[in-house]
Design a protein around this nucleic acid. Sequence first.
RNA 1: GAAAGGAUAGCUCAAAGGUAGAGCAACUGUCUUAUCAACAGUCCGUUGGAGGUUCAAAUCCUCUUCUUUUCUCCA
Length: 939
Amino acid sequence: MADYKPTLNLPKTDFPMRGDLTKREPQCLDHWLQTKLYQQLRQARAGAQTFILHDGPPYANGNIHIGHAVNKVLKDIIVKSQTLNGFDAPYVPGWDCHGLPIELAVEKSKGKAGRQVDATEFRQACREYAQQQVNQQREDFKRLGVLGDWDQPYLTMNYQTEADTIRALGKIIANGHLEKGAKPVHWCTDCGSALAEAEVEYDNKQSLAIDVRFTVLEADAMLARCHAPGTGGQGPISVVIWTTTPWTLPANQAVALHPALEYVLVECAGEYGTERLVLAEALLKDAMCRYNIDHYRVVGYCKGEALEGLLLQHPFYEREVPVILGEHVTTEAGTGAVHTAPGHGQEDYVVGKKYHLPVHNPVGGDGHFLADTPLFAGEFVFKADRKVIEVLKAKGKLLREKIITHSYPHCWRHKIPIIFRATPQWFISMEKAGLRQQAMAAIETVNWLPDWGKERIKGMITNRPDWCVSRQRNWGTPIALFVHKHSGNLHPNSLALLEKVAQKVEQAGIEAWFSLDAQELLGEEAQDYEKLKDTLDVWFDSGVTHTAVVQQQLGLALPVDLYLEGSDQHRGWFQSALLTAVAMYGSAPYKAVLTHGFTVDADGRKMSKSLGNVVEPQKVIKTLGADILRLWVSATDYRTEMNVSDEILKRIADAYRRLRNTARFLLANLHDFDPAQHLVQPQDMLALDRWAVDRAYRLQQEVIKAYDGYGFHQVYQKVHQFCAVDLGALYLDIIKDRQYTVQTEALARRSAQTALYHIVEALVRWLAPILSFTADEIWQHIPGQRTPDSVFLATWYTGLFSLAETETMNPAFWQQVFVVREAVSKELEKLRVAEQIGSSLDAEVNIYCEGAVFECLNALNEELRFVLMTSAAKVYALAEKPDAAVTVGEFALLAKASSHTKCIRCWHHSADVGSHAEHPELCGRCIENIGIGEQRRYA
RNA sequence: GAAAGGAUAGCUCAAAGGUAGAGCAACUGUCUUAUCAACAGUCCGUUGGAGGUUCAAAUCCUCUUCUUUUCUCCA
């Protein structure tokens, strides 16, 4: 048997079938670095319309997890697709570098600032630690294939940025939003400082629980407010509170009731004679039992809201305190009446604010009552509990005392119980200069994606308290203000001073403030002013990057096009950016805000070490490659939770192989194609090839639309389907015969190659934002002069064209043909099962039809068999249909094994095999093709 | 405890009141000219559950389960 294989034009390529991504991707990254791809891109797009995605800075601590990877990849897909749109879309990644977690990490190695190590040295260590964390995270982000200005990222600890953060504060002060106040914070009496949430741990503590009478000042006024069917009883009336922190009573400013709870007025005989008590009805029995009172009677009742504003006598001070209402009051324990000391409790503070109660804190930093505190001056708070009880007893206000054990916050370092203590703080007021209302208006100007994000942030802005921006910390942007020692007022020249400080910080970083001698700026006045030691909340640092980074460092205009972060950032960055922007210049810093959900496992549970369901991006990259991770990100609808597991990634890897192999096949069939010489003009191309280009043309419009709408999973679905169905199952399968068997230079072949060429040019661009590494690799293998050098410098391919409806063989025509093809396929399968044929080329088929179907099939003439991939395909009128034919819809089919001999070169069965003496195993078509060449017109 | 989002085939996604549909996977074959590939055929669903509105519900309403995020987490 002669070997005709060398006479075929078989596919040939260096583009490997296997991705080998774990090896190839790092090389690709090196190449991008060496060619300064990012810088090239900036030059190439200079002057083009911009698209600015402003990066939200991850916190510079710890390894990146899958959530970071999702966020960065989504950003990268957007930036790359917008670049393909022709926009100048710079991407400058950033890091959030100040703050507590870094301080805590440094404390572990260096010790606490001001104790084992001085504050300056401590801050330097924080700076170094943060930089090292940035470096580590940066390597992981780069490995994901994210294209950005990694050499010049923005860091909130850059001197310039620190200075501009201070200037941002100045602007907010100038606009009248900053306010001094006091707020209770966790306070360790041993540390002598405030503790952050992360420094607090809960443990059991024994406390004295007491029930205390707050006597109603005007009994008549009280009775007038409630239903008292009889006489209303006898004796003094007291509202009873229950507390586990007796030492907070000196700071009491009110008693809180729940507005909707039912309260009762009970007459009973106590140790001081007949009296009346006010309690929540639901707790009446419990309370009476606790007080050992057997005989009592309800003499009146009312809802809590009826008592609002009623005045009570403080149990041991000459102070009148009001009844206030709070939703936080419950009936789980106590009396339904809550002792309220805004200086000693978060909730009391919040509700107190509503009623304009004074925030009174009589306790010093060492936990001892201040010298001007009547009765308890100098006492340590927890020791004062006993003394408070003695005083209450003496005043006849104590109903009962008992030692209880309960969960209580402790200092994680000293393991001692901590207290809530109001300390001076700085706030950005939501109301003082209309910030809340302006922010609400700004929300309306932003495109929130998905749309429920708008309601979410509106709800948060509506309800949020003033923003406490001060922290008693070391590693942070300083609140660089001077406060008058006696009046507590800001220095009248604060704004000018702030600018002077900012100039110093530009040169030497935040240390310039901490090491500043006040005299240098204030001269003689320095002795009258206190230089603030507080730092800014880190959310302020990241919040103002719209100014400190976007405007100042990058010189870009606001608002930017897009912020993109996880949905938790409605509470975080989206809000801190919005509030600071509105406070500075009255409008939102972004045009649109896009959010993504969190990654969860296959069952929708969040990832945790204890559940063992954590997917680490580093591991995925090491085993499957970054492109697989990227493909997963693109394939997943990120608007809700994103499921990820080994199985899901395996499926994604399968899909990757299909995409890669499709590209490989296209390239392999273009190995001898030079577009400069061989490209066939659209009007000269075969009809089927024009159909294929038309499919790509239509798809490209959908792909671009999907990218612009940030619907990447649609891109994935559509492109994958195109590769699997339009190309794999149809077009590529059909043209193999033409590609392989006709003459190398035949129009029939060059026409198909032209289509393949157009398609791969388009495909590589569709894939580039998602499969960046693979697309780059494909780009290198596409034949012809490649300009630009990289797919990332390119714009969408413009060589595609549509197939006009007016053509005979228009898209609808081919649709009809493929319906028949599918039916034929099913018929052939029957023959195959019956073992009458193997390959479809072993069969021939007769089609009986009329009307449009007949016209259609007949138009293809002799070439119908190539579309159906049978050795023969004949079209007859429906009337001629024999009984053996199978009817499928509008037509009927009769398929049978071919009786002719198989040509060993093209595998078609044909009557003319053997007609040539020199090539007894070939058909006439192949003889032509080895020699003079076959003519084709349609398929 | 509250608010918001989500739940459709083994997986990823469609279907905006009108017969639940793709692709992948699985299974069974074919080919050996994309070969650790490709093609063909087959199978797969009480749309988380229960009610309701409607001639008709994945879709609208109510309740419920699970889950995610945020808030509250307390005298």
